[in-house]
Each structure stands twice: as structure tokens, then as C-alpha cells.
Design a protein around this nucleic acid. Structure first.
Lengths: 140, 140
DNA sequence: TATAGAGTGAGAATCACTATCGATAACAGG
DNA sequence: CCTGTTATCGATAGTGATTCTCACTCTATA
């Protein structure tokens, strides 16, 4: 697998290339860490490229379904979205500034699989997120 | 019912021992896996021991704050509660019936800690949940 | 360019959860 | 047992995120 010739903002096959979709993608691209749908909607409005709330959610859900963005839920249960490198991975998120680092571990993947097998579970998948305070925010 | 294991239903210091609190604890005790606040409320009503919605949430939150129940969020973002054995552990939850198995792994704990240190993060904690289909539900 | 139908968006609907606040009941002291 | 204090209840009205509706708009393509 070399670098896919696919543009970052090109819609998935069957999807149309609209101003709104590009705007949401752009906002995600610009974000440093995770951003909520509400935040993205507000930023687009502030940037003079307003997109309807329903559309923001629609695009984000579509991107999540096609694996183009990752979704985690914060303590309040609100969905947070982030543009990510393809492939399975997890995040180490700063609870102060929202900055996120992608991490992966074959050890965890294997552990999850073994735990499932040991207990007779099939189709096992897992939710793993790490939270903490990043070095930049720690010195506050 | 010989010696009532009042330990399980004893309120935290400063908390009063009310019928409602006992009812919610009882419902959790009776549940096999995770249960939502809505489900607990419905079950109590069906059992003839109705408790107000607000109270169910209040008691559940209190129990969660004092570490007497574990909370996870399902795919829809709804909170799911479960009476648990004390101590840090994770869950392997059946997506079909909600049955849950407690699992733990020093490997994961260590991995989380190392990942945090490697990236300059402090006060690192983690969310880890495993989901799958249990053997009983797999044969459907 | 004409056109089918995917995409959009304002607003209503839904849904889990929280805040309000007068009524009620637990518990300690008498 | 009686009673005052006050934690706790709970019916109900929010609150805030997310989804649904559906008439209208615009992309992709013949």
C-alpha cells in the first residue's frame, strides 16, 4: 500500500462534491484536536461559510461510517470528531486543550481478542481511549 | 434470607437510608448486565415500587461518584450502569443481551501508563471496554 | 442543456438527562 | 413517642445534543 492518489477532500464514490461537504472537511482539517459537531457548525458560521446543523451531522456521520474520521465521546456524552490517519488506532487526548496523539498497540489488540475468545465471545471489538494532561498544559 | 447483608445497601456516610435508594440498589443487584437509568426506572415501576426518574438518576450518579457502580456509554451515548466488584477493571459486554464479564489486565494498565509517559502526558487514565457477542447469543 | 435524484437546511421532534422547588420522610435530641 | 431540622423525593419544566421531515437546490451526467 503506497500513498493513495485520493485527495483529502474528494468525496467517497457515490458522494457528490458539495460546498458544504468541503466546508466540514476543511474545518476538521483545520482543527488541532477533537471538535464537536456543534463547534464545527459554529466555526463555519463564524468563518462566513455557514452550513446547516443537519448537514454538519450528516456529513460527519457519513465520514465516520466510511472511516474517514474518528469519534469519541467526552464525559458529557457529546460526540467529538477528528480527521485521522487511516487504519485502526487509538488516541491519547489532553483533557485540558483537546490536543490528541494517535497511538497504537498490537499488544492491546491481541489482549482484546484473547479476552473475547477466553470468554466465548465472538465479533469482539473494543473502545480504548487514553486521557491525560499534555506537557504544554501541565505547566499551568 | 438469614443475616441481611446490609453492607450492600448501606448508604454512604451522610446519606439517608431511603426506600428509593434501596429500590435502585436492588434493581442493580438483580440485573445480570448493564442497565440504563431508563430501564431501571421502568423495572421499578413494573415491580410496583415506583421511584421518580430524577431520583433514579440522582442515586445512580451518587453511586457512580462513590465508585459503587461502573458506568459505560453504549453506541447511542446512553449511560449504562452496573453494580461491580470494587477495584479497577474493565468489561466485556455482549451487544445482544447486555451480559457483562469483568476483565482486568496489568498489561493494558502498563501500556496506558507507558504511552502517557512516552508522549509527555501526566495524570493519564483510560477508558477501555470490550464488546462482542456472547456464546449464548451467538447461536441465534 | 436538460434532468434525475442526491444533497441541503430551517424547524420540529426526540431523547437522555438536569434543574426547580414545594412536599415528604429520616433521624437525632428531648 | 414527639418534634424540629434537613436530606431526600418527585412531578414537571427545562436543556442540549442529535435526528427527522420535506420542499427546494445543485451536482453529475447523458
Amino acid at each position: 500500500m503506497t500513498t493513495p492518489p485520493r485527495e483529502m477532500t474528494r468525496p467517497a464514490p457515490g458522494r457528490r462534491d458539495t460546498r458544504q461537504r468541503r466546508a466540514v472537511l476543511g474545518a476538521l482539517e483545520r482543527a488541532t484536536g477533537f471538535a464537536s459537531a456543534q463547534a464545527i457548525h459554529a466555526r463555519l458560521r463564524a468563518a462566513g461559510t455557514p452550513v446547516g446543523m443537519a448537514t454538519v451531522y450528516r456529513v460527519l456521520r457519513d465520514l465516520a461510517d466510511t472511516g474517514q474520521v474518528d469519534v469519541v465521546r467526552d464525559d458529557a456524552g457529546e460526540q467529538q470528531f477528528r480527521r485521522c490517519t487511516p487504519g485502526h488506532h487509538h488516541h491519547l487526548v489532553c483533557v485540558a486543550c483537546g490536543r490528541a496523539v494517535e497511538v497504537e498497540s498490537v499488544a492491546v489488540e491481541r489482549w482484546a481478542e484473547e479476552m473475547g475468545r477466553a470468554n466465548g465471545f465472538t465479533d469482539v471489538h473494543h473502545d480504548v481511549e487514553l486521557f491525560g494532561t499534555c506537557s504544554r498544559c501541565a505547566g499551568a
